[in-house]
Each structure stands twice: as C-alpha cells, then as structure tokens.
Design a binder for these strands. Structure first.
Lengths: 349, 349
DNA sequence: AAGATCATGAGGAACGTACCTCAGAAATGA
DNA sequence: TCATTTCTGAGGTACGTTCCTCATGATCTT
C-alpha cells in the first residue's frame, strides 16, 4: 500500500497536524521538526494523492482562455479543441472560461484581463500581441498570483509563466528546408503573409530567409506580399507577380489565407506546378494537401496546445513541477501521406 | 457549484442509494426509476467527479507494460519514457509494472502474460509480435476482463481493446515521398531492415514501394538488405552494394540500426552525398540528423505512446470513453530544423 | 392471502487529504 | 524563575463518491 500522511506522522514521530503543516508549508513548525517530517517522507517514498488533496480543498480550477475574436480558421480550430478539452476537463474539476477580445483593440483586451481577477480565476492562457498595455495588465495579474501562459504567440517581456507554442524561427527554417529541397533547383519564391506586424510572421520569415540564403542560394526569395486579411488583395498581387513572366517556382504562406490563395491559383490555371508550403493545418490546408494543391504544411497540434496550456496552468496553481518533455510543442511537418485522420471530435486538426 | 449525487437524488425524488445504483449500473432499480434518475442527471448537467470516485473506490491502477528484452535504442527510449511516466502517474494512483520477455520466445511471453492476472493488474500494454500462443494468452486475459492495448506493433487478430502506435504503411509512404522529392531525379535506393519478418518492416516497405512506383518511377528501389541485428552484416552488404559502381543515391532504413549504418557510411567515405531517411528518433538518429548524415527521420513520439497507452488503459478500466483525437499517434517527420530540443527528462525522444 | 421476491430509503463508514480549534508542552525572553 | 511566545498534539469536520447493512413498502407467485 502507498503510504499516507498517517504513516508519515507515525514514522516521523509527530502528529498528523504537524505533517499537514509541513506538507502545506504552513507556519508554526520548528526547522528541526520540518526536517524530521521531510526525512520520513523520503524514507517512505510518500507521494501526495493530488486527487484526494483537491477533493479536500474542494478546489475547482477556473481557467480562462483569452483569444482574439478573429474568424480565422486557426482560431476556429483552436476553439473546437477548447470546447472538447472543456468537456473532458469537467470531470477533473476544471472549468474553462472563454473570453474573446476585438483583435485590434488592446484596451479592450486589457479591460478583459483586469476583470478576470474578480472572477475568481486561477489561470489565464492568452493569445495576443505584446503591447505595453497588455504588459501592464499581465504584470497586475501576476502580482495577484494568477498563473499565466502565453498561447501560440509568445509574450517574452512579460511575467508570463510559460509559453505554449512553437519556435517560429525554427518553423520558418523547417519550411525553408522543405521548400529548397522540393524545388530542387533555381527559381523564385513568393512569400505571402497577412501582416508583417505579427510576431509569428516576422519570425517565420526570418528563419526562412536564414536557411534559404545558407543552403539554397540559387533560390531567390521575393519580398513578402501582405494580404491584410483581404483575399482580393492577395489574389491580385499574386496574380500580378506570377503573370510578370518571372521564374516563380514556389509559394510560402506565412500564416493563414489558404483559401484565398488557392482560389487565386486555380483561377490563374498555372501551366506549371508550384511548390506550395504553408503553416497551420486548417480544414482548407488539409483539403489542399489532399488534392495536391499544397505540398507541405508546418503546423502545431491545436489539441496539444490547449491541453498543454491547461496542464501548465494546473501545475502552476498546484505548485507542482511540469513534465518539460510533454509540454514541448512540436513543429509538425504534414504532407499528404502523414495527414492525420480526421477525428469525429475534430480536436486535433 | 457543480451538482453532486445529492442534488441528483433530490431532483429525481429518490434516495442517494438509488442514484448510486443507477450511476454504477448496479441491479435493483426499476427501469422507470433509472430513467427518472438519468433525466435528473441530464437536467442538472451532472458530471461525476472521477477523483472523488476513485478515492472512494480506493482504486489504484496497476498497469503492466510488457516489452521485449532487446537492447535496441528504440526500446531504451521507450523505457525512459515509461520511467518518467511512472513517476508522474504515481500521484494519480497509477502504478506501472514493467515486464520484459526474451524477444524470440513466445512461450516465455505467454507465461508472463498468464501470470499477470494473478498479480491484480488492471490493464496491459503489450509490444510483441502476434503468434498463436500470444493470441491465446490475450484471449484469456480478455476473458478475465483485463484491458489490453497493443503498443507500437498492432495485434489485429486478437481481442486487444486498442492499438497505440502509428500506421506503418502510411509511415513508409511518407518516407517515400520525402525520398523521392529529396532525390530529385533518377537513381537507386537501398532499403535496409533488421528482419523482414517484423510486421512493421513489411508494412513500411509496402507503403514505401507503393508511393515510389506511383510517384517516382525513375527511382529504382533495390531489394531489402536484412541485418538480422548484426552490424557487420549490414556494413558489409551496404559496402558491397555501394562499391559495385551502381547508381545508389539514397538509403532507406526500415527500422533501427542507425549506428551500424552510419559507421559503414563514414568508413566508405562516399564521394557523393546520399539521401538517408530512417525511422525512430533514437539518440543516434538525432546525432545523425544534427551532423547531416541523415536527412529525415519518420518517428512516433515515445512519450505520447506511453501516456496514450496509460490513458486508454485507465479509460477502459473506468469504462469511460476516450478522446480519439488525443489518442491518435502522429507520424512525425523530423529533419534537422525541427528537431525537438532534448529535454532533461529525455522523455520525448 | 400468505409468503417470497424485488425496489427503495435511511444511515453510516471509508478513501486520503485539508483545515480548523483548542489545549497543553516546549522554548524563549526578562 | 515566571510570563510570554512559539510549537505541537488531539480531535473534529469536510470534500464527493462508493459500498455496505438493515428495514420497509411494493409487487409478484401460487
């Protein structure tokens, strides 16, 4: 049988109350006694039963996920994963609170964040760009003891406890290697992004250029085309670039916008096959891979993101260590052949 | 507040005992009453608190992992992941029992399996080839109500509850796409495997050939070289093939044996760069990727394998549904650029 | 209609931990 | 040494469930 607090008390020759004080780091125990209890704990190999502990605390975890209200497919898949995770988490005394903020309004975001504390929330997973206002809001939450993780987009200069997401520079490098090798020769590559103001886009482009220059000097990477979320813009610019008789052999999509691009491409009816590589495995990207309109997608598993964020927030709240290996989000390479089966729950797009 | 069994009892106008009988599907309740209770459950949105339930049951999960006693790096990394998972699981009332069996001795394996039942074990994760003896042993365990998952290597014709691992045909196809595209032209490819009797090797080779023939007809895939676990054999055959002045441009490793191969390759000092693609991200494969001796590794996350097996076994034991999306093991493509950082725990090689 | 069987209620103990109170012991200061 | 402060012990209740016993009322047999 596993040892319990009672066994520890006996072993250490103290009372249950004292063991409890030591375990929960409450004051009123002499250093010597603390040591005796800790020795007993080690000697017996005691591990606290978190389930019983949480039951006794009658602690329920209220975790907030704060996301932009953009309708992008990436956010949509994130929401789906969140929904599923919420249902699964319910039986583990964890409640997920969803908050959306207007994408371009840092003040609204700050207001939402500051309201969280009053709402008795134990932790926040935040997907937002880092602005001074947000930094202040996070500092305030942090001072109130709230666990905070940055989701998808890191907030390196804040008091966030953890970043749940991928290294976007490495993701860009990965895309570059595939692009370079798939091209297998000289040519030009168009890079398309929503806006170069987004941290992810900048980092990916940086990593992409790095590898391209080093390993594939024969490939010319053109300036980033910014779509600003408007498909027409994207379509037009791409069409223009392509029709200028240049030697474009590949397209690199820094972010979302797969739909608009694939429409543009099918309209143009290119005589020649292009190498198309993008990020985020949205339903459209999945379809594009299946039909061969895209060659590879660099992605992060949305289900993992959500579950990892929840685990980290819980661990922070419980003050227990996390399993670094498990919380490391992989840069996944998806091609048609290793496309994961669509599950009913859709949780793992 | 979340509703509890007491709330359900009040809502349904029955006693706590009756609610409990319904919840745990125990006899002695009229169909009409069962319905009334279930209605109340739905009306209040009751979710059973599994932590409290398990506490009350004072159930501890003893889960056995049965693995071959081969010293292969893959099994080693699996063991490391298992060790870590065991430490994490301890606080969730789960105990991991490890059993090794002589790799070539199905009788010994069957003996170990049949001993499990007496050992009060709730579930087994088994990594073993499917033989008639093993099939019988599994049937017997199944009849005793034990949860069984096949690990890494599927046991399709048995009563296993679930398979935790990847689709090896798809993994082979994935390798083929990368090989074909990285080669970027005609040439020959050597395929190296430990033994073609292993299900995985056969399936991977099958998938590899499928795609090669369909998409890259200009590439000639040579017959599989079998190493039978002996590095010298492998080294010699590879050296021979290469020195025969043929047009070998790529090497596909069906399984382990990265060390022997990389030694062979460095000895031969090939004038020309080869495309080397293999399976399983062992420490050697990792080193080979880092130094550029390998181009890509198709792998499955060992940490995920173990955790998924544990979750599935627990779910089966608790008779609760599993999250299909979470339990789907990905076919991961790893190149140098997206090589996951080595974590201290090494859990996720 | 009497006995047998079944469905239900009431109540309680247990799981392992947290957290509270109060009394008394030990250490500390003057 | 006495008063004061600081530790410690004993005991209890609670968390949400499981599972047990016993009693009673309802329903079925023949």
């Amino acid at each position: 049988m596993r040892p319990t607090v009672i066994d520890i008390a006996k072993e250490a020759g103290v009372s249950l109350a004292t063991v409890d004080r030591v375990l929960n780091e409450r004051p009123g125990v002499r250093a010597k006694t603390v040591q005796a209890v800790q020795d007993a704990i080690i000697r017996l190999g005691y591990v606290r039963d978190v389930a019983a502990a949480n039951l006794a605390r009658s602690r329920t975890y209220r975790m907030a996920f704060v996301l932009p209200d953009t309708e992008s497919q990436f956010v949509q898949t994130l929401l789906e994963a969140l929904d599923l995770a919420g249902r699964m988490a319910a039986s583990a005394r964890t409640e997920i609170i969803l908050r959306r903020f207007p994408a371009e309004d840092p003040h609204a975001l700050a207001a939402i964040l500051s309201r969280l504390a009053a709402d008795d929330i134990a932790g926040v997973a935040l997907m937002a760009p880092e602005t001074p206002i947000v930094r202040d809001a996070i500092r305030s939450l942090h001072q109130q003891g709230m666990a905070i993780v940055a989701l998808v987009s890191d907030l390196p200069n804040t008091e966030r406890d953890h970043f749940v997401g991928i290294d976007n520079v490495a993701a860009g490098r990965t895309a570059a290697v595939l692009m370079g090798r798939f091209l297998a020769g000289p040519g030009q590559v168009i890079v398309v992004g929503q806006s170069m103001l987004l941290r992810e886009s900048i980092e990916r482009r940086f990593g992409f250029d790095q590898v391209m220059m080093r390993d594939f000097p024969q490939v010319e990477v053109l300036q980033t085309v910014e779509s600003h979320g408007r498909p027409q813009v994207l379509r037009q610019i791409v069409a223009e670039t392509l029709s200028h008789g240049s030697n474009v052999k590949g397209i690199y999509l820094l972010g979302v916008g797969h739909r608009a691009l694939s429409e543009a491409l099918s309209e143009l009816d290119l005589g020649q096959r292009m190498v198309v590589i993008g990020h985020e495995l949205t339903p459209h990207a999945r379809a594009a891979l299946e039909t061969g309109r895209m060659d590879a997608v660099i992605t992060q598993n949305v289900g993992h993101l959500v579950r990892s964020a929840l685990r980290v927030l819980r661990a922070r709240t419980d003050r227990v260590p996390i399993d670094e290996g498990q919380e490391q989000i992989r840069i996944e390479i998806v091609i048609r052949e290793n496309l994961p089966a669509r599950t009913e729950s859709q949780s793992d797009l």
